[in-house]
Design a protein around this nucleic acid. Sequence first.
DNA 1: ATTCTGACGTGGG
DNA 2: CCCCACGCCAGAA
Length: 109
Amino acid sequence: MENKNFFQKVYSIAKLIPFGRVTSYGAIAKYLGAARSARMVGWAMNASHNLEEIPAHRVVNRKGLLTGKHHFDGTNLMQQLLESEGVIIIDNQIQNFEAIFWDPLKELN
DNA sequence: ATTCTGACGTGGG
DNA sequence: CCCCACGCCAGAA
C-alpha cells in the first residue's frame, strides 16, 4: 500500500478500524510514516465522505473529541453512529476513550 | 506562483 | 486537565 496515494492509504487504515473502536488522526498519520501530516488525514476523510463507505465517525482527534461531527450531514450524525456501536459520548467527548482506542501501530502492525 | 486554510499534534506555562 | 503558539503540508482560491 506504500505505493498508493496518501488518501488511499488513509482509507485503507480507516476501513480496518474494528466495530465499536476508534482511533485518532495522528495515529493513522504516524502509521503511514507521516506523523507531521495528521491534518492531512482529516482532509482525506473529508474527501472520502463521497467516495467509499469509510467509517470516518470512528476517527477522532487525540483527545477523543468529535471535532469533525460538524462535517457530517446532521449535527449529531457522527455521535449517533458511534453510539449505535456502543460508544458512549457526552458533549462530543468519547467516554472511556483509552479503552476503545485502536492504535494501528500497536494493534495492526 | 502566492496565499490562506484546516476533521491535528506537541510543547510550554 | 486547560490555554496558547507554533509547526506541518496537501488543496483550494
